[in-house]
Nucleic acid binder design. Structure first.
Length: 431
RNA sequence: GCCGCCGUAGCUUAGUGGGUAGAGCACCCGGCUGUUAACCGGGAGGUCACCGGUUCGAGCCCGGUCGGCGGCGCCA
């Protein structure tokens, strides 16, 4: 008999038919001559019942000995059963045990810390499984959206020789007697690709060595970055808005069950529709002040401020044209207002805060060199980046989206660690 | 980096006027004909993070070390 996936047999079409499944023991309990076993596979869970009166003694004894997480193959008749957790039940006829598991360390009482220590086992939980599927669908939806818009996927290097942005701290790694660094952003490399492929994107890890201890920072995170020729700041905002909507739609279509497992209200995602809020930088400061914050005219918002400002919003907020002093040198100053740059951040609502940063890049060689000098940096360190402005330079824009932050927001999680299979933080490198 | 909190059985934890360390889950044994991280009875399981000090006596008081969590700062 061919093995079937659990999600495929949870329907009336298989009732009274013999089915064969493989998976792991998720729950086990006995009551006299009955043994109830809930089996989990990659698709869902289903209850199996072993009755002493209807299976041979050897099979029943084996069912009685099963332990949580044992790997098994079970055959039996599918029936409808309201008392079973997913509405159907298999009346077992036979079982093959591949491995009788040792006592599983995860029980009903568990702390966040413990779950991080045994992350390699916690990955099997329904919560993590649901989160991983949501991550996958999010990236798949993004790739589909990029492909529909003729973006090419590229793979920039992760070993780099120098920083992209002055501010961030880099991880240094030995490199055959020289120093190399782990990339903190692929932006500069993506800019190199646009002169042939025009529109490009990548989904790769970025690394930041900041000693940040907040619910939205990791030292290694999945970075979705894009860069496109012939597009300006506002055009890029339009593009990102549709990207986020495409992702939300994909989750609504394909991940209803997983969102339910994570207790995320799907109506929140259904509400992610055009138009998002769009405010110039000064307006967001005004909103902060209206909530009682003491904010200077020109100030970087902290995590706490962002959380409070976005708390009452129901849709993402684009904040554009920040004061020049707050942003890295490569952002293009607004020709109409040189103290501001043509950039934007997208803040997720409900307190989640920044998930996208992007904008239009300086495309004039001389302007770029002037901005590098103005920031006290050395143009020699950016030789190849400046080189790109010498041979048919074009207006272009790009953005970077934190995949893990976006998952945290859309899945309604409380901490970025829960959006990542093996989170890396300042104090955690294992497992 | 700064501030705060925490470290007792595999897990979650109770336990300060200093006086033999207690429970639930998991595990083992037994019971139960519809269980929902079941229930009932029994059993086993502890260098109370580590080092030092005070004391007749320290899980508890004092000093230090290590590890973790949360917040701030930094940052995407």
């Amino acid at each position: 008999m061919d093995r079937l996936y659990i999600s495929d047999i949870l329907n009336d079409g298989f009732v009274d038919k013999d089915v064969n499944i493989r998976g792991w023991v998720y729950r086990w309990r006995e009551s006299g001559p009955l043994v109830f076993v809930v089996i989990r596979d990659s698709t869902n869970i289903i209850q199996v019942i072993f009755e002493r009166s209807s299976v041979d003694e050897k099979t029943f004894e084996m069912a009685k000995k099963l332990t949580i997480e044992s790997s098994v193959e079970i055959s039996g008749k599918l029936v409808k059963q309201n008392k079973a957790p997913t509405g159907y039940e298999i009346q077992a006829k036979s079982i093959k045990v591949y491995h009788l598991a040792e006592p599983f360390p995860i029980t009903k009482d568990k702390s966040d810390e413990f779950l991080l220590d045994i992350r390699h086992l916690w990955l099997r939980s329904r919560e993590m499984t649901a989160t991983l599927k949501i991550r996958e669908t999010l990236m798949e939806a993004a790739r589909d959206y990029f492909n529909e818009h003729f973006y090419h996927e590229v793979t920039p290097p992760m070993f780099v020789g120098a920083a992209v942005e002055g501010g961030s701290t880099l991880f240094e790694v030995p490199y055959f007697g020289e120093k190399a660094y782990l990339t903190q952003s692929s932006q500069f490399y993506l800019e190199a690709f646009i002169f042939s492929l025009e529109s490009v994107y990548t989904i790769q890890p970025s690394f930041r060595a900041e000693k940040s201890r907040t619910r939205r920072h990791l030292t290694e995170f999945t970075h979705l970055e894009a860069e496109a020729a012939w597009i300006g700041n506002q055009g890029m905002i339009d593009f990102e808005e549709e990207l986020i909507i495409a992702i939300a739609q994909a989750l609504i279509e394909k991940r209803k069950e997983e969102l339910k497992i994570l207790k995320r209200d799907i109506n929140v995602l259904k509400n992610i529709e055009k138009p998002f809020y769009r405010y110039p930088y000064e307006k967001i400061i005004e909103i902060g002040r209206s909530k009682g914050m003491a904010l200077e005219d020109v100030v970087d918002l902290g995590e706490k401020e962002e959380r409070e400002i976005t708390a009452d919003f129901d849709k993402p907020i684009f904040v554009y044209n920040y004061p020049k002093v707050l942003k890295p040198f490569y952002h293009r100053p607004d020709p109409e207002d040189p103290n501001h740059v043509l950039c934007h951040d997208m803040l997720a609502p409900e307190g989640y805060g920044e998930v996208i940063g992007g904008g239009e890049r300086i495309w004039s060689k001389d302007e770029l060199i002037n901005r590098i000098l103005e920031e006290g940096l050395n143009p020699e360190d950016y030789q190849w980046y400046i080189d790109l402005r010498k041979y048919g330079s074009v207006p272009h824009s790009g953005f970077g989206l934190g995949v893990d932050r976006t998952v945290t927001w859309l899945a309604g999680l409380d901490h970025i660690k829960n959006a990542v299979p093996f989170p890396r933080t300042i104090r955690r490198l294992k497992p």
